[in-house]
Nucleic acid binder design. Structure first.
Lengths: 171, 171
DNA sequence: CAGCAACTTCAATATAAAATGAAACGAGCA
DNA sequence: TGCTCGTTTCATTTTATATTGAAGTTGCTG
């Protein structure tokens, strides 16, 4: 359980312009990025940039991945803001060229900082509110429920001490 | 970046039958479960069971959470198969009663084992195929691309040695 | 072993998320 | 200043995911 396998399969259409290495890299990153809740197009873009030995323009990404202008622009925006991709200057060239940042640990860090930590903080606030609401409960249920809330808080505290350590290990 | 905040808000309809503690718990678990790619209804069910001092039937879950028969059945199935919930025997009662397993570490373990490890394995296979396909590349690109594939493999190897350790720490 | 309550399944439907592409924007250049 | 190319934005469309509930199944019980 915990959701299905369902393998990523490249559409036939883009088979022509991509080699084995590119296809494998793209599929791999689609899978990992999906794990972080990111859309397919973002994984495709990063995958292609990861194995590309030279910077690519947005136009090249659109063409080779067969994605739209909007998807390319938004995907790159997201990747840049996560520090996963950067624009490099190309002399005498007007358009932007993009390269992948190969330090994969960035993703884990960004994910922890932006997704997990805020949820932990919010959860702690909720736990306080739950504690405070214990008095509304009928006597009989109070002890049992208090125990459960405490269990929850122990986990939240654990998380809040562990994650910064994990972040240090990564970055 | 890395997807939006967008807070879970309980539908007005079920406000009536749920107290503060229940609402807070439900919203908290909806948020965490979503992080693991699980549907809202699954988070709702687990949240309510988590703070419920006594076992609940499927019918109670349907009524109090205002979810359908199918959602309750499937959500419980998923939670049971992940070991997050179990059915307890209730003397002289025909219908099943469910309780939450409070050991939250189970989720992390299940998630790592079922979602992350398989993807790492598959990724390693892909990396081998990429390595093998290097010879198809024009000379000029080979060295750079080989370096990138190696970078990838270093990360995959790291992951494959770290995760089992993480699993031990949890369980 | 018939009837029924409890549960499961799954095709249909509703909802949410991502992709598209036309229109708006903006930076550099003549 | 007005063009032009490259990029961003966002309303619309498409696709994917979750939910519903009726029909099917199971297994207890009288």
């Amino acid at each position: 359980m915990l959701s299905d396998p369902k393998q990523a399969v490249p559409s036939a259409s883009k088979g022509s312009s991509l080699g084995t290495i590119e296809r494998e890299a793209i599929e791999m990153f689609i899978n990992f990025f999906r794990l972080l809740g990111l859309p397919k197009s973002v994984g495709e873009i990063y995958g292609l940039l990861f194995v590309s030995p030279r910077p690519l323009t947005m136009e090249e990404l659109m063409r080779r991945l067969d994605i739209s202008l909007g998807a390319a622009s938004q995907g790159l925006k997201a990747l840049r803001s996560a520090g996963a991709v950067k624009a490099v200057y190309s002399p005498g060239e007007r358009r932007d060229h993009f390269v992948a940042n190969l330090e994969l640990s960035r993703f884990a860090s960004a994910f922890i900082k932006e997704q997990i930590l805020p949820k932990l903080e919010q959860a702690s606030v909720r736990a306080e509110r739950m504690e405070a609401a214990l008095s509304d409960l009928p006597e009989a249920e109070r002890t049992e429920t208090r125990g459960r809330i405490n269990e929850l808080r122990r986990w939240l505290d654990r998380g809040r001490t562990m994650l910064p350590v994990a972040l240090k290990l990564l970055g």
